[in-house]
Write a protein that binds this DNA or RNA. Structure first.
Lengths: 120, 120
DNA sequence: TAATATAGGCACTTTAAAGTACCTATAGAA
DNA sequence: TTCTATAGGTACTTTAAAGTGCCTATATTA
């Protein structure tokens, strides 16, 4: 692995949880282990390819575990690894801040949050 | 402003602080007010265009204040707004996590962090 | 007098991230 | 026997993010 130079340590964090999907995936995993298909249902607009790709990268970085059950049709679960749990505080804070921000900008959350998640 | 639908509230956070530069800029601003040229020096690899663009967007979202001094050559300062300060906890946590992660992955921080910031 | 520092704007190009389409395997149910 | 659900893989295309190059204004300094 080639040693990259960072100008500020937050850059290292962004390499792990940056991008459009990783924080979303990790936030869902803070609520517990999830099958691939469950994640897909929780993120209706992610494509199969992106989901698999992001999960692979998160696994490579050691923040999630991939649990394969040897059965057909296949069953694979993902969960935060012990190391990934060190991100839980950040992930919850990111979710909460977004929640507050939505209220600040739009007033009524129900107008911008899909019904499916209003009861979270 | 068109009302976007979010499937999870962290998406709203990412609209404000997502991308390659915004967290970095905000992290620097947690250490206090900074002139444009200071930010540029702190982020040697950002281009003038990206810096200005990201600062504009952060200002539009209400997380930073732009302070213009009417003088020549121009002097402009940026600081976290009151609202932006609600992100301080997250920003510090992101920096700290990155710091730990670098140690975990590379062992010796001095090999991957530019000297200029090792004494931060 | 000419160079410098400052904080940008704007048109264009490049690159990386994300998305689309189509493919695999197989147990069990209809 | 055909269909469905599951968890992918792969080649290709599109889109959005980021970068490049060149431009402005003016007080101060060398």
């Amino acid at each position: 692995m080639q040693k990259k130079k960072y100008n500020i340590s937050v850059e290292a964090t962004l390499e792990v949880i940056g991008g459009k999907w990783k924080c979303v995936i990790l936030c869902h995993l803070t609520h517990g282990k999830k099958r691939t298909s469950e994640l897909k249902r929780l993120m209706p607009s992610i494509t199969q390819k992106m989901l698999t790709q992001q999960l692979r990268e998160l696994e490579e970085d050691g923040v999630i575990n991939r649990i394969v059950y040897n059965q057909v049709p296949p069953k694979v679960e993902y969960e935060l690894s012990e190391y990934g749990k060190s991100l839980e505080g950040i992930l919850n804070a990111l979710c909460n801040w977004g929640d507050t921000h939505i209220t600040r900008v739009y007033g009524d959350k129900s107008e911008v949050l899909e019904k499916s998640i209003l009861n979270n």
